[in-house]
Design a protein around this nucleic acid. Structure first.
Lengths: 164, 164
DNA sequence: TTGACAGGTTCCTTTTTAGAACTCAAGCTT
DNA sequence: AAGCTTGAGTTCTAAAAAGGAACCTGTCAA
């Protein structure tokens, strides 16, 4: 399977992965959420080659995750900012960071602390059910095929249902 | 920066990405959560080359995300199962799937529906603050350096604080 | 003894990535 | 006005990773 085929798979994970499923893209997104916006700044922070950076930024703009905003004319210069679609990736980034905090932190502890402005406390993200509000873990979830399911999705959902 | 350096970065996202930040790995994990467990089954479903599949499974086992469990002796055969550390990746997978459901679904709608066993309803994942329980979005969060921060982390947190 | 099955490994080709140098346009400096 | 600097890239070559197909290894069953 190639990158280009991935976005046509009847699977929301595969389609998302076609946009962000690459190590540089995830690191670029991390920096976007930390308010890094300019080509040179990404390049200096990440140590990514300029070629790949240009490519990844282009792809993220095409995917509607970032937009190019001119911050000066003559010479025209742009910065890259998250769109609303891009901001919606925050839960993904937060979930990834949290797993790293729990399972990959060194003895000195976590590198960054997230503070919830509304309540003023350092927090961990909790993943809850939109209906009942309770926390949800892997074993609390059953899947079934939705309207956009392909054959493979139906097979899997059946299999998963059988397995319990 | 190379894969091998990534896991030593003082950043929980980078460290997590060193384990799961690759498109095949994410697709393999998706299937793990859908109860796919055997080499041949992964290979048939994903269309991944056998070479890469063997490599990725090996890496996931080394990272403690999967474990190899013998399901028969003579000839000895193994299956790959999520460890507790692997099950903890569920929020990551769910967040990725949800973004795809919202932003990448075709006109027919989402391919899979997630049902919360406890309350019996189809749900979307909501990302809440562990302290006050309210939903958390990107703009509700402030970051500051934690005990494991390096120089770069401190710089960024300062910058982010200045920017508001 | 031949074939099938599960789970890999080997070998070779094509694509990506890394790393460094180069371009280009517009200011700024002396 | 000649030369240096800055931001945002592009071009080049070498090295690494991925793709594809065939092969290997135990064990059982016909």
């Amino acid at each position: 399977m190639k990158w280009s085929e991935l976005k046509r798979e009847p699977c929301s994970l595969a389609r998302t992965v076609s946009v962000i499923g690459d190590r540089w893209t995830l690191l670029i997104l991390r920096d976007c959420f930390l308010r890094v916006r300019r080509f040179e700044e990404f390049q200096a922070r990440l140590g990514i080659t300029r070629h790949l950076l240009a490519d990844r930024l282009r792809k993220l703009v095409r995917a509607g995750v970032l937009r190019k905003v001119a911050y000066q004319a003559r010479p025209q210069r742009f910065e890259y900012r998250l769109t609303d679609k891009g901001l919606d990736l925050f839960p993904v980034v937060l979930a990834i960071v949290h797993w790293g905090d729990v399972h990959m932190a060194g003895r000195r502890g976590r590198p960054l602390i997230h503070e919830h402005r509304a309540c003023g406390h350092a927090f961990d993200p909790v993943h809850a059910c939109s209906v009942c509000g309770e926390a949800v873990a892997a074993r609390d979830v059953r899947v079934r095929p939705g309207p956009g399911a392909g054959r493979r999705g139906r097979d899997l959902a059946r299999k998963a249902a059988e397995a319990g």
